[in-house]
Design a protein around this nucleic acid. Structure first.
Length: 219
DNA sequence: CACCAGGCAAGTA
DNA sequence: TACTTGCATGGT
């Protein structure tokens, strides 16, 4: 019950986040890789570079050299390794799904997830972000904030790993891509606003009192 | 100036 | 198995 309660509190406080609405699948997939350990504002610059170059399509990206790709995505940081990761992903789609991204996204959830995880550079969070936000699969995306927020409120064990946290959310919430979409975005929003050393607002966190925890004392 | 951002893989012990 | 480090830019 606490899991739904946390969602309700966050939604009431922050409102709908509408992450990745009305954008193309390839744009969401590219964004999911580029945002690894990177601020989203830097990712939008990289994506805009690709758009301006007419390169935000599967075929164009597939045929582009890594050096050229790296040049476009430079503002998102880690541009050398990210251009390689994107290429690895494009090659997997070519080899397993006939170069059709939509075939990957409409594959069975666990099969598509295995395909994504087989790509060097695609870990569980990136894979699940692609499944949820580009493919509308009901998979809960766990991130660093999820772990910090829930462990410090005593809602999960400190030592929980990605898979065990994902199982907790999945079995304690209705199976709904729309819910998982908002929930993950709201947890990131909470983290950004209340998880920082320099933030003076920790006393008025919307989760104050949840599970008997009065302070959102991250630091 | 330090710190952080919608991670992942490779290296080390 | 359990840490640690490299990757790199831009905003606050």
């Amino acid at each position: 019950m606490a899991y739904q309660e946390v969602f309700d509190l966050l939604f009431a406080y922050f409102g709908p986040q509408h992450w990745w609405p009305g954008e193309t699948a390839i744009e969401i997939v590219v964004g999911a890789v580029l945002t690894q350990n990177t601020n989203w504002s830097n990712v939008t610059k990289a994506i805009r570079n690709l758009q301006n170059a007419g390169a935000l399509s599967y075929q164009v990206l597939l045929e582009m050299s890594m050096a050229e790709l790296a040049g476009y995505i430079r503002p998102s940081g880690y541009y050398n390794i990210k251009s390689k990761r994107l290429k690895n992903l494009l090659f997997m789609i070519r080899d397993r799904y006939e170069g059709d991204l939509l075939r990957l996204l409409s594959d069975e959830t666990q099969t598509a997830r295995s395909s994504l995880l087989a790509v060097q550079g695609i870990g569980p969070e990136t894979a699940d972000s692609i499944l949820l936000y580009a493919g509308d699969h009901p998979v809960f995306v766990v991130d660093a904030y999820t772990h910090r927020i829930f462990s410090r409120h005593g809602l999960i064990a400190e030592e929980s790993d990605y898979q065990s946290m994902q199982e907790e959310f999945t079995c304690r919430l209705p199976v709904s891509s729309a819910l998982y979409n908002e929930y993950h975005a709201l947890l990131v929003m909470l983290g950004k606003n209340f998880c920082k050393k320099t933030n003076p607002l920790c006393g008025q966190c919307p989760l104050k009192g949840v599970n008997g925890v009065d302070e959102f004392k991250f630091f």
